[in-house]
Amino acid sequence: VARNSSVVFQDSRLLPWSRVLPNVTLGLSGRDAAEAGRTALADVGLAGRERAWPTELSGGEQQRVALARSLVRQPELLLADEPFGALDALTRIRMHGLLRELCSKYRPGVLLVTHDVDEAITLADRVLVLDNGRFVADRSLDSLGPRRSLRDPEFVAHREALLAALGVDVAAH
């Protein structure tokens, strides 16, 4: 495992008694911490919100603060435990695009845990399916390329294979 790693959880886990910038720079010290925090906030579309309280933010904004907190550390590995699970469908789609942009800029390796097959196919280069602690499917998605459409026949084929590995009969639904 990379020595420099960070985690984004399903819940933003922001400290309600701290404003946004101190939440982003939590655990960092030095003169450059605040500037790095401001840069990370700008990268997630929250420039100017440094002094806001977490309760003043929407769920999507709170999750973007959590993402900024993880990325401000310049991780080699980003562990993402269902980071979009608590978001509404439209915000979730926007966050997929944002995560792609941020990964291009910060270049961490990402391990994403999700129960959403479409999300996995949209974001991943490789999908592993676990069942009772064992891998029951391992699919490389490199052939899909960066622009992925739910209507692409190859996307559909991956989706059906992954759902089958999860025990979902696609034909019955």
Results as ranks from 00 to 15, higher is better:
V110P: 00
S70Y: 06
Q74C: 02
C103N: 09
A80E: 04
R73A: 04
A89V: 01
V117E: 05
R139P: 00
T122K: 02
D131P: 00
L57V: 04
L41G: 10
P54Y: 14
F84I: 03
C103M: 10
R19E: 15
S5D: 03
L111V: 15
P108Q: 15
S29L: 04
L98E: 12
V170D: 02
A42S: 13
S12A: 15
T114W: 12
G167E: 01
A52Q: 06
P75N: 13
A66N: 01
G59W: 05
L144P: 00
R100Y: 01
V65F: 08
R147W: 07
R107S: 05
A68L: 08
S104G: 06
A36N: 08
R73T: 07
V1N: 09
R64N: 09
A164V: 08
D152S: 13
D138Y: 09
L67I: 15
L28Q: 13
A124G: 14
S6R: 05
G109I: 14
P16C: 08
A36G: 03
G59D: 09
H158G: 02
R69K: 05
A68W: 11
S6A: 15
A34N: 07
S58M: 10
D32C: 00
P16Y: 15
S6P: 01
I93T: 06
V72Q: 03
A66V: 09
D11A: 11
D169I: 07
L98T: 11
F135G: 01
L90D: 02
R64E: 08
V72F: 03
